[in-house]
Amino acid sequence: MIKLTDLLPVPEPGLTKVKFNMRAGGGGGEAWDLLLDDHEEWLNMSRWRTRQTNNNMADARYLLAFAQYYPYGPQYFIFGGFYDVQPKVPEMLNAYGYEVTPLPQHSEYVKRLIIKLNEPIGRNVYLRRYESVQEQLRPEVYELARDTKLGTFPGYQNVKLRHHELQRIIANDEPSWKDALSSVKGVYVITDLTSGRLYVGSASGEANGLWQRWSAYANLSNLTGGNRELEHLRAERGDSFLVENFQYTILEIFDPKTRPEVILLRESFWKQALDTRAHGMNRN
Results as ranks from 00 to 15, higher is better:
Ser182Thr: 11
Ser182Tyr: 06
Ser182His: 10
Ser183Gly: 12
Val184Leu: 07
Lys185Asp: 00
Gly186Met: 02
Val187Leu: 07
Val187Asn: 01
Val187Ala: 05
Tyr188Val: 00
Tyr188Gln: 02
Val189Phe: 04
Val189His: 02
Ile190Thr: 11
Thr191Asn: 09
Asp192Phe: 08
Asp192Ser: 09
Asp192Cys: 13
Ser195Met: 13
Gly196His: 11
Gly196Val: 03
Arg197Thr: 11
Leu198Trp: 03
Tyr199Leu: 06
Gly201Ser: 07
Gly201Asn: 03
Ser202Leu: 04
Ala203Trp: 00
Ala203Lys: 02
Gly205Glu: 09
Gly205His: 10
Glu206Phe: 09
Ala207Met: 14
Asn208Met: 12
Leu210His: 05
Trp211Phe: 12
Gln212Met: 13
Arg213Ile: 07
Trp214His: 06
Ser215Cys: 06
Ala216Gly: 10
Tyr217Ala: 02
Tyr217Glu: 01
Tyr217Arg: 01
Ala218Glu: 04
Asn219Pro: 05
Leu220Arg: 14
Leu220Val: 11
Leu220Glu: 15
Ser221Ala: 14
Ser221Gly: 15
Leu223Lys: 01
Thr224Val: 06
Gly225Trp: 00
Gly226Asp: 03
Gly226His: 07
Gly226Trp: 02
Asn227Tyr: 09
Asn227Met: 07
Leu230Met: 14
Glu231Ala: 10
Glu231Val: 09
Leu233Tyr: 05
Leu233Phe: 04
Arg234Met: 15
Ala235Asn: 15
Arg237Glu: 12
Arg237Asn: 14
Arg237Thr: 08
Asp239Glu: 09
Asp239His: 11
Asp239Ile: 12
Asp239Arg: 11
Ser240Leu: 14
Phe241Tyr: 15
Leu242Asp: 04
Val243Pro: 00
Glu244Ile: 06
Glu244Asp: 14
Asn245His: 14
Asn245Arg: 12
Asn245Gln: 08
Phe246Cys: 05
Gln247Ala: 10
Tyr248Pro: 00
Tyr248Val: 01
Thr249Val: 11
Thr249His: 12
Ile250Glu: 03
Leu251Met: 12
Leu251Gly: 01
Glu252Lys: 15
Glu252Ser: 05
Glu252Ile: 04
Ile253Asp: 00
Phe254Leu: 09
Asp255Pro: 08
Pro256Thr: 07
Pro260Arg: 09
Ile263Gly: 00
Ile263Ala: 01
Leu264His: 11
Leu265Cys: 14
Arg266Cys: 06
Arg266Met: 09
Glu267Val: 02
Ser268Pro: 03
Phe269Val: 07
Trp270Phe: 15
Trp270Arg: 07
Lys271Pro: 01
Gln272Ala: 14
Gln272Thr: 12
Leu274Gln: 11
Arg277Val: 12
Arg277Gly: 03
